Amino acid sequence: MLSQGVVIQNNQLLMVKQRVKRGDTVWNFPGGGVEKDETFEEACIREVREETGYAERIIELLYTNDSKHTYLCEVVSGELTIEDDEDILDVQWVGLFDDHYFDDVSKPIVELVRKLTMQERGKRYV
Rank of each mutant, 00 (worst) to 15 (best):
Q9V: 08
N10P: 03
N11L: 07
Q12P: 01
L13R: 04
L13S: 03
L14G: 07
K17Q: 12
Q18K: 15
Q18G: 04
Q18A: 10
R19S: 09
V20K: 13
K21C: 09
K21W: 15
K21R: 12
R22I: 07
D24H: 11
D24A: 15
V26C: 10
W27P: 01
G31Q: 05
G32P: 04
G33T: 12
E35Y: 14
E35M: 13
E35N: 11
E35W: 08
E38P: 01
T39D: 04
T39A: 06
F40V: 11
F40G: 11
E42M: 08
A43C: 04
C44S: 06
I45V: 15
R46S: 03
V48D: 02
V48M: 05
V48Q: 01
R49K: 13
T52D: 06
T52A: 08
G53L: 08
Y54I: 05
A55P: 05
E56H: 15
E56W: 14
R57N: 14
I58T: 03
I59R: 04
I59V: 15
E60T: 12
E60A: 12
E60D: 10
E60W: 11
L61P: 08
L62R: 04
L62Q: 04
L62S: 05
T64I: 06
T64W: 09
N65G: 05
K68R: 09
K68S: 09
H69G: 08
T70W: 00
T70K: 03
T70N: 03
C73K: 01
V75Q: 06
S77A: 14
E79Y: 10
E79W: 02
E79Q: 14
L80S: 10
T81P: 03
T81N: 13
E83Y: 11
D84V: 08
D87G: 07
D87P: 03
